[in-house]
Design a protein around this nucleic acid. Structure first.
Lengths: 107, 107
DNA sequence: CATGAGTACCTTGCATTACAAGGTACTTAA
DNA sequence: TTAAGTACCTTGTAATGCAAGGTACTCATG
């Protein structure tokens, strides 16, 4: 499972950040609810930092009612473009893999 | 695109090998026709060797009508199990990613 | 007030793996 | 005999998910 996530997870993060500002810990919780059980914080935080370096997201700290300050992320214009591009790549991949599996395993 | 293939390509290879014996060069051609333009032989051969080490496939050399001997691969029982397992993982991934994209980008 | 649970962030090091680039060698036709 | 097409393989590099480990804040409980 873990290998399959490579290159897909960042697109999912962009998608989640797209609608609302979110913070890293929240992302971990949301992803888990979506069924990605195994995505740990050790994966998410480096990814967010990388995406910020690439100017796909920006961040601001806000106080929390319970616990340390939260680092909220939101998409830049470039991030929105990257999300759109990811969706296209994902759809393309999905179609191709589905074709292979259908053609070759149900002849 | 290339990152998204990690962990997916080997399942596709298993699927293609599943029905008919195929050789490496043929796999490259088939994948290209399925839309995976960028999958080069430098990717496929190491993967086949790895899968053989893991006893997912076996291979036999046969003469070719044009060119050097071909190394034909076929699935072992373990390979068939792995293919079935891959299909489940893929379907699971597909559903989850689709949910994220739908929920978060079309609210 | 001290302690623990829950929240929230981050770093280091490792393993996996797709690919570019480069190499070998066989067959057939010009 | 030369070129084109077929067919195999290896080396080195880059990307990236994750386990493990660490820091620090808030609040309720004893």
């Amino acid at each position: 499972m873990t290998q399959m996530m490579k290159g897909i997870l960042d697109g999912c993060l962009l998608a989640i950040i797209n609608e609302n500002e979110v913070y890293g810990y929240e992302l971990a919780v949301k992803l888990e609810r979506y069924g990605f059980d195994s995505i740990s914080e050790g994966t998410i935080y480096p990814l967010l930092i990388r995406m910020q370096k690439e100017k796909l997201v920006t961040s601001t700290y806000k106080k929390s009612t319970a616990g340390p300050k939260r680092k909220y992320y939101s998409l830049t214009d470039k991030g929105e473009e990257e999300l759109a591009s990811f969706i296209k790549r994902w759809e393309y991949l999905q179609i191709n893999v589905t074709n292979v599996l259908n053609d070759e395993t149900k002849p």
